[in-house]
Amino acid sequence: MARPREFDRTEALQKATKVFWDKGYAATSTDHLLKEMNIGRQSLYNAFGDKRKLYLEALESYQDTTVAGHVRRLTDAESPLEGIRQLLAGIAPEDDELRSLGCLGVGSVSEFGPADPELARLRDRTNRILGEEVSTRIRAAQALGEIDESVDVADATGFVLLTMTGLQVSARAGADVASMRRQADFAVDRLAARS
């Protein structure tokens, strides 16, 4: 009996993620995944299970990486308000191809809605982590007078997360970097305390 071909699991997962990110779950065939991942059908099943399990793993890996990048942009700036600006501006990468993909997580919500409990769990975990970080920065901005203390932290956090989603959908729809960054600036300027 022939031994299954060895392959780099991490690299194969990254390739699968790119396919799902580009096409969505329903439009991605197992054959297309096999071709892009450069593995055989049995290797796919042995390493990842089925297409759905592969999708869940790809989405979770994508979200972990993406949230880490969001949090880094949010917290790297000394000014909390500037951190929020960097968070939103980072939704618009310079790379046209990358920007046009939008967000795999937002695509998942658009494709499946709230009905799938496993996807809802991943979405809720991501929203909780990012929401807590945004709330922390909003409170810090209030303490520094960058955001008025009368602004409700939960409402402002929701506004930032909603703006992120809107920017990600705009990216998928073909928005250019300049217009996306103008919208990010507009949103942050709405949060800024009036002098």
Rank of each mutant, 00 (worst) to 15 (best):
A26Y: 03
R99I: 09
D116N: 07
D148S: 09
G105Q: 07
M1Y: 03
M1A: 14
Q63T: 13
Q168Y: 08
A175V: 12
Q42G: 06
V67F: 05
Q168R: 02
L13Y: 15
F159Q: 05
K18V: 04
E132W: 11
Q63E: 00
N38M: 04
R182P: 01
D22V: 11
L81C: 04
K51A: 09
V109W: 13
E133M: 01
V19C: 00
V151G: 12
A77S: 04
R181M: 00
R137N: 00
T126E: 02
T157A: 10
D155M: 13
A193E: 13
L162F: 07
S170G: 12
A171Q: 09
E132N: 13
Y25F: 13
A175K: 15
S170W: 05
R72G: 08
V134M: 04
D50R: 15
V134Q: 06
L162A: 11
K18C: 03
M164S: 14
D64L: 08
Q183E: 05
A193W: 12
G49H: 12
S29E: 13
E132P: 04
L104C: 09
I129E: 02
A89H: 09
G107K: 05
A89Q: 02
R52Q: 03
D155P: 07
T28N: 07
M180G: 10
A115D: 04
S170L: 05
K51C: 02
A141M: 05
P93Y: 10
D116C: 08
R121K: 13
A68W: 08
R190F: 14
R172P: 06
D8P: 00
G49A: 09
I91K: 05
D31H: 13
V160L: 14
R139C: 10
G145P: 10
V71D: 11
S135W: 09
P114F: 06
R72P: 08
A156M: 12
L44K: 15
I39M: 06
D124W: 10
T17H: 15
E6V: 04
M164K: 01
K18N: 02
A154G: 03
R139G: 05
V67R: 14
T75H: 15
E133D: 10
A175P: 06
A120T: 04
D176W: 08
R9C: 03
H32L: 12
A47G: 04
L54G: 08
H32V: 10
V177P: 03
D8H: 15
I147W: 15
Q168N: 13
G69C: 12
L191P: 01
V19T: 00
G24V: 02
A192I: 11
Q14G: 11
W21L: 04
A89K: 00
G49W: 14
Y55R: 15
G131Y: 11
T126G: 00
A171N: 07
A16P: 06
G102R: 00
L54V: 12
L98C: 03
A92C: 01
A193N: 07
L59C: 05
A92M: 10
G24W: 12
E133R: 14
V169F: 02
L44H: 13
L33M: 06
R181T: 02
S170M: 08
V188A: 15
R182M: 03
Q63C: 07
L54T: 13
K35E: 11
A143F: 15
R41M: 04
Q168P: 03
D155L: 09
E97S: 05
G90D: 07
Q183C: 08
A58L: 03
